[in-house]
Design a protein around this nucleic acid. Sequence first.
DNA 1: GAAAAATCAGGTAGAAATACCTATTTTTAT
DNA 2: ATAAAAATAGGTATTTCTACCTGATTTTTC
Lengths: 225, 225
Amino acid sequence: MDTKITLAIADDELLFRQGLMSILSKEKNLEIIFDAEDGNDLMAQLRATKQIPEIVITDLKMPGLNGVETTKLIRKEFPDIKIIALTSYFSKPFIINMISIGAVAYLAKNSTPKLMLTTINEVADKGFYYDTQVMKFIHEGLLNTNDQAKKSNFDTTYFTKREKEVLELICQQFTTNEIGEKLFISPRTVDGHRNNLLLKTESKNLAGLVVYAIQNKIVNLEEEF
Amino acid sequence: MDTKITLAIADDELLFRQGLMSILSKEKNLEIIFDAEDGNDLMAQLRATKQIPEIVITDLKMPGLNGVETTKLIRKEFPDIKIIALTSYFSKPFIINMISIGAVAYLAKNSTPKLMLTTINEVADKGFYYDTQVMKFIHEGLLNTNDQAKKSNFDTTYFTKREKEVLELICQQFTTNEIGEKLFISPRTVDGHRNNLLLKTESKNLAGLVVYAIQNKIVNLEEEF
DNA sequence: GAAAAATCAGGTAGAAATACCTATTTTTAT
DNA sequence: ATAAAAATAGGTATTTCTACCTGATTTTTC
């Protein structure tokens, strides 16, 4: 048959994006319709083009509109598009969340080109593709659905108690050192927690973290006026 | 007479705070009841103590609860306390805003001890004190009340078009360099705008800026879900 | 009791932000 | 026309943040 698999790619790193496009464009059965530097760019192009791609490959950590929000938007406006999420962060709750949002595949950014191609073809063919590790997480996630799935909020990525404390203080403009003093832990530990927060929220920096925290009401803004 | 003027001081910089206390404690007619490292600390001590200070001297730029929010809270819970605002930023709209919020004096952080004492005594005596510069601003601000006071929003500190653009992009996790590219201006210029934003919002860092932006709806979070 | 998750914390680097400074040009308002 | 405000942009120094790495200890979960 002659019908190519149509793709769009979103990633803020130009080099990575072009490298990926270079690899994929060698495949005869793939056609890259366009690429985008972030979610907003991607959405704009989707809304403008007459040729809607079959698959969107999107990084999760991008400035502007990140991968999580982008995925939600695509699902809403273009429900037929299949979304492959690219990330460097693998955790059970986060993957479960991404899948529940609508990603049909979840791929590490350091995967081999071979795996990338397999994923694309499987997604085009069957509509989804999860590798062994992801399948394991999904399996375990499903097992827990009934008992304690609700208490640990899958829909807001999942934070530990310490992480919430640190996030709260970050939003209150305390620096890493100050947070360390307040919580009686080393600044390096705060560093670690902040890093996990950045990973879990797929944020590029503090600004993204704060926006996330407020949007998801992890922190309380005292608005008593 | 023997009635001393009772004071509380809030400033996050320990050295500045203690220096100020050292100066003020030499005055026989002053009594410092307590000091606090930020707005939350101040409010906690106010709520706990049985001796409410007559005057609160508060820095505007503090982590946790900053001076603007602190002033609002004090006005609400302890309407009799007179608030002297300490700042390093002098602008007409901002000062007008502070006064409308309830500050009875507005003092530069690099003022002389003499001026500080004058301010305290005048505030204790007459209930307010504005130096020449501040009076000028108030005068001009009042003149404009009818025509265009409403379009330039006094109650939300006042931002220029460029500042709003930069703020928007900061909230979208773009770095200074990236913002420069997007707006076709030098990163140094973005630096300048960001610095003005920090000054105007009395924020310590990006986190404070983002919180401010969201609270005051300067930026729009695309929440279409 | 074993496994997983969370918390803790060290090192090294580099990027980004922030604090100071200064100054020119352009725009806006009166 | 004059003054004020806004936008532009340079330098230097320091702090903070972020990206990597690593591992130990404690707590939770099954």
